[in-house]
């Protein structure tokens, strides 16, 4: 994906505290339109908290979030979803009682506008709207190669497929910014390769901007355009994979500092 240097999201001086614990200390970074932006760091660095801030679950005590050139006020997560930000979770958060198809259809929620009265009589556009959205969902299902499990309840699926369905649900929303919280956690090499390919394809074909948290350094360095490194709630590095790899502070954080 060719990244033009317009800022899709600009995060300025975020401070997030839980009582006395400072989870995020004055962090700023930006996400360009069309790039794959990785956030890495050791456990407890505040990466997931950062996603939760972007996503509206946490409201930072200080700092600003700018999205598409506008400063964002205090918003609820569902309002942020309507702005075009979708995400997946570290621990799969699928709707266990529903089929894979219904899960992904739920991802179309923000695109379905027909009134409740139309839905009651299943006419006046509600059924038409349903089938139009089904078409979009079927494209996502094709893309992720999960046709065979369409009608299976997701609770019965193996872990790797559940991760894929969850990605499908986020993709179905056709977001401008896609947040992925450890999309490859607990996967074997093949599954990681598949998932990397899907992420690159999403970025290439649909032009979706991706921000992801990942622990597998090989994957991060291969697929991302730029990387933010966090440690103990502070930003210690920011730049292309090569720059980050050679950053002394990052090396220290990951490998430890020898004491002379």
């Amino acid at each position: 994906m060719n990244v033009d240097n317009t800022k899709m999201m600009d995060i300025k001086n975020i401070v997030l505290r839980f009582g006395g614990v400072v989870a995020i200390q004055n962090i700023s970074f930006d996400i360009f339109k069309g790039e794959i932006r990785a956030i890495i760091g050791p456990n407890g660095a505040g990466k997931s908290s950062m996603l939760n801030v972007i996503n509206g679950f946490y409201h930072p005590q200080e700092g600003e979030v700018w999205f598409r050139g506008k400063k964002r006020g205090s918003m609820k997560p569902y309002q942020i979803a309507h702005q075009g930000i979708a995400r997946t979770f570290q621990n799969i958060a699928l709707f266990k009682g529903m089929s894979a198809l219904d899960n992904i259809m739920t991802g179309r929620f923000t695109h379905m506008k027909k009134s409740i009265f139309s839905q009651i009589i299943w006419a006046g556009g509600a059924s038409k709207e349903e089938y139009e959205n089904r078409e979009v969902v079927e494209k996502v299902i094709d893309f992720l190669e999960i046709q065979h499990i369409r009608k299976t309840p997701v609770g019965a699926l193996p872990y790797g497929l559940q991760k894929r369905v969850e990605l499908g649900r986020a993709l179905a929303a056709q977001p401008e910014l896609l947040l992925l919280d450890e999309p490859m956690a607990g996967m074997n090499v093949e599954e990681k390769e598949d998932m990397s390919r899907y992420i690159l394809d999403v970025n290439n074909e649909f032009g979706t901007t991706v921000a992801l948290i990942e622990h597998d350094m090989g994957v991060v360095m291969d697929i991302s355009d730029r990387v933010v490194v966090m440690d103990y709630g502070k930003k210690i590095g920011d730049g292309t994979p090569d720059e980050v790899r050679n950053n002394q502070a990052v090396i220290d954080a990951y490998l430890g500092v020898s004491e002379h």
């Binding site: 996503n55 679950f57 609820k76 997560p77 569902y78 942020i80 979803a81 309507h82 979708a86 995400r87 979770f89 958060a93 699928l94 709707f95 266990k96 009682g97 529903m98 739920t106 991802g107 929620f109 923000t110 649900r169 986020a170 929303a173």
Partner: peptide, 13 residues
Amino acid sequence: RDMDIAAEIIGVN
């Protein structure tokens, strides 16, 4: 019913 947090992030009020 199944996961209220996930419901909220896909836009359900």
